[in-house]
């Protein structure tokens, strides 16, 4: 058996986030080198601030400034920073209770090594040179033995507040289609379409998934299907997708290859889009170097009778 295919799959998207009043003030404050917390019903100051009281569930509005100096309440050494983390050299993840706050903020501490970090150590904010209204406006924390800073009493009113942020999300996967689809994909390179027959219901799955979802049993018997097939249903796509290099309009069809137990999906060509119909007999058209048929074209056979494919829509 040949090796199972693998490939990197990167999933990333720049999500936008509306901040609401409290986070808007907090992030705008960072832009202005002001750290704001929020006062709860029981008189505590939460930093970072939250919109709703964790104890009473009441809405919180009372913003109060805290100091840019504080104390490490706990920490963990990060010997190998990854992409997107606050510092590129090894650093400590720290929880810092800023002076004037009752809760701690998670951030990075720039320190030469784990021996230089301890719970209870005094630190201060190192501001980023360029600030936009984001948590990264705090570049990191740094050890600080000087005088405790006094907050200036800011109440959270700013000119041109930040109301939204872009939160870029990225996930790095190693994707594998698995044993059954690897065999299917390898067969396609020889321009053959291989399915797998369920030992229980005898239906042929194309593409195969290694198991029959109806019977819940593994499949392994290899069955060649096609190359010809029948268009069982379709739509005419008139809108161009950003990430898809296909001219519109085009026909997206469900095609039941001869011998297959269900339809696969493909594009129909070689015929005007408005002449495609259910029951049209088609065959694959290959292009050099492509993994899949580029499209399917009419074979010229008479259309299939509806009863022969009505279970394969």
């Amino acid at each position: 058996m040949s090796a199972v295919l693998k490939a990197p799959l990167v999933v990333e998207f720049p999500f936008t986030r509306s901040l609401g009043p409290v986070q808007s003030a907090f992030l705008t404050g960072l832009r202005e080198r002001v750290v704001l917390g929020v006062r709860t019903g029981d008189g505590r100051t939460l930093v970072p601030p939250v919109e709703y009281d964790p104890v009473t569930a009441e809405e919180l509005h009372d913003l109060v400034e805290v100091a840019p100096t504080g104390t490490v309440t706990t920490w963990a050494w990060n010997p190998a920073p990854r992409r997107g983390q606050p510092l590129t050299t090894p650093f400590a993840w720290v929880l810092v209770r800023l002076d004037g706050a009752d809760t701690a903020l998670l951030h990075a501490l720039d320190a030469p090594g784990p021996a230089a970090v301890h719970t209870g150590m005094p630190v201060r904010i190192r501001w980023a040179g360029e600030r936009t209204g984001a948590i990264t406006d705090i570049a990191c924390f740094e050890p600080y033995d000087g005088r405790r800073a006094e907050p200036a009493g800011h109440t959270g009113e700013f000119e041109a507040p930040v109301t939204g942020i872009v939160a870029a999300a990225r996930l790095d996967y190693t994707y594998s289609p698995g044993r059954a689809q690897t065999a299917y994909i390898n067969a396609l390179s020889g321009r053959r379409t291989m399915g797998e027959r369920c030992p229980s219901c005898r239906k042929v799955y194309v593409p195969p998934r290694g198991a029959c979802p109806t019977c819940g049993v593994a499949t392994s018997e290899q069955v060649e299907v096609g190359p010809r097939g029948t268009v069982t249903t379709f739509c005419i796509v008139n809108i161009k997708a950003k990430n898809l290099d296909i001219e519109v309009p085009y026909v997206y069809a469900h095609i039941a290859l001869d011998g297959a137990g269900l339809a696969l999906h493909g594009r129909i060509g070689g015929i005007p889009y408005d002449e495609v119909r259910m029951g049209l007999r088609v065959e694959p058209v290959w292009t050099d170097g492509a993994r899949y048929p580029d499209h399917y074209r009419p074979t010229g056979e008479p259309d299939a009778d509806y009863d022969t494919y009505k279970e394969l829509l």
Binding site: L5, P177, F234, A241, K242, A253
Partner: peptide, 21 residues
């Protein structure tokens, strides 16, 4: 998805053939 043929984007194209059926 790696190794898959990109053919379609979004839900409308997925459901339209079923409506035709």
């Amino acid at each position: 998805i790696p190794f898959q043929q990109p053919l379609l984007a979004g839900a409308g194209g997925f459901f339209a053939p079923h409506i035709r059926a």
